[in-house]
């Protein structure tokens, strides 16, 4: 009966929703494994975060110190592997965010553990479902041995909620070996935006090559996002062309989203794009080509010139909300 260790990522002193998804998956996993759900918080000056994590009913281990001030794969791997050994951990788990994807495989290699990435369902403590081939196939994967390492798709589980008995908080000091922790953080150029975070938003409006340039994202798509309180997303074509920043890319190799409402504007619907949004509850497509593949998976399709339809839609939404 081993424990489950959730790596709890944080940003600007908060846990993003994706972390809470990881916690929820960790609790489910602990139910299967029969052990406890532990949470690891790494950083510098993280006392408040550690206490907050305990509110979700997990026993928290805080690794506080200068080597962990910024996320770096080598130092964090050393700490997580150390925790896994000390705490009798059977499964290490985290949300498949940029940090989770960067960190967990390294942890798995350190532990010699079998790994499944982007898991969408937990069948039992060693069996998982995960998409392959851009979501064209769903594999059921069995991992042999212990420990095992699993990253979970952020749209596949609910976010954990506070409540129940508060977990304990313990401190652990880890001093990574300087010889194998040589990565240096230089800077983080954060995309500033007042809009909701793409992976947390209830509504997402994404633009594609059909918008033609970055300016049109500002003129046409932004007001619609504003009116709906939506996050903005984009296709790879739009990001590659430099219309919008890279972290807006939705798809197989970008972010995976599943909002209540996804509006695809000027996006053709390539399989790689669908891989990142087809689990949305309601999908709307606006495209001037009635044959565009995006219509095959849309609940509501509007064949129209986006430059005419989007401003109209923005106005209608505003009227509705007034």
């Amino acid at each position: 009966m081993g424990n489950v260790l959730v790596v709890a990522e944080h940003l600007h002193g908060k846990f993003p929703k994706t972390t809470l998804v990881g916690v929820e998956a960790g609790k489910q996993m602990a139910g299967h494994a029969g052990g406890k759900c532990l949470g690891a918080v790494l950083g510098q000056g993280i006392g408040a975060l550690a206490s907050e994590l305990a509110d979700y009913g997990v026993d928290v281990i805080a690794v506080d110190g200068a080597p962990f001030a910024h996320y770096l794969a080598d130092a964090y791997t050393a700490a997580i592997a150390e925790l896994a050994k000390q705490k009798d951990v059977e499964v290490v788990i985290a949300a498949a965010t940029a940090v989770g994807k960067d960190l967990l495989p390294r942890v798995a290699a350190r532990l010699g553990a079998g790994m499944a990435s982007e898991v969408t369902a937990i069948v039992d403590k060693a069996t998982f479902k995960r998409p392959m081939y851009a979501g064209n196939a769903i594999a059921t994967v069995a991992l042999a041995g212990s420990p095992r390492v699993v990253s979970v798709r952020t749209t596949a589980f609910d976010a954990a909620k506070k409540g129940g008995a508060k977990g304990s908080v313990t401190q652990l000091t880890v001093s990574p070996d300087p010889a194998s922790t040589k990565m240096q953080f230089v800077e983080f150029a954060e995309t500033k935006s007042d809009r909701p975070v793409l992976t947390e938003a209830r509504i997402v409006c994404s633009g594609g090559r059909g918008l033609k340039n970055g300016e049109n994202f500002t003129i046409y798509l932004e007001p619609l996002c504003e009116a709906l309180g939506a996050a903005m997303g984009a296709s790879r074509a739009a990001v590659d062309a430099g219309f919008v920043p890279n972290d807006l890319q939705v798809g197989q190799t970008g972010k995976v989203v599943a909002p209540e409402l996804y509006i695809a504007v000027g996006i053709s619907g390539a399989i790689q794009h669908l891989a990142g949004m087809k689990d949305s509850k309601v999908i709307v497509a606006i495209n001037k080509d009635e044959e565009a593949p995006i219509f095959q998976i849309s609940d509501y399709g509007l064949v129209a010139d986006l430059f005419k339809a989007v401003p109209e839609l923005t106005e209608e939404v505003k009227k509705l909300k007034a």
Binding site: A98, V99, V186, A189, E190, D247
Partner: peptide, 13 residues
């Protein structure tokens, strides 16, 4: 590096 929320720069030996 392309990460969530922006671009991160690392130095690696």
């Amino acid at each position: 590096r392309e990460v969530d929320g922006g671009l991160e720069t690392l130095n690696i030996p």
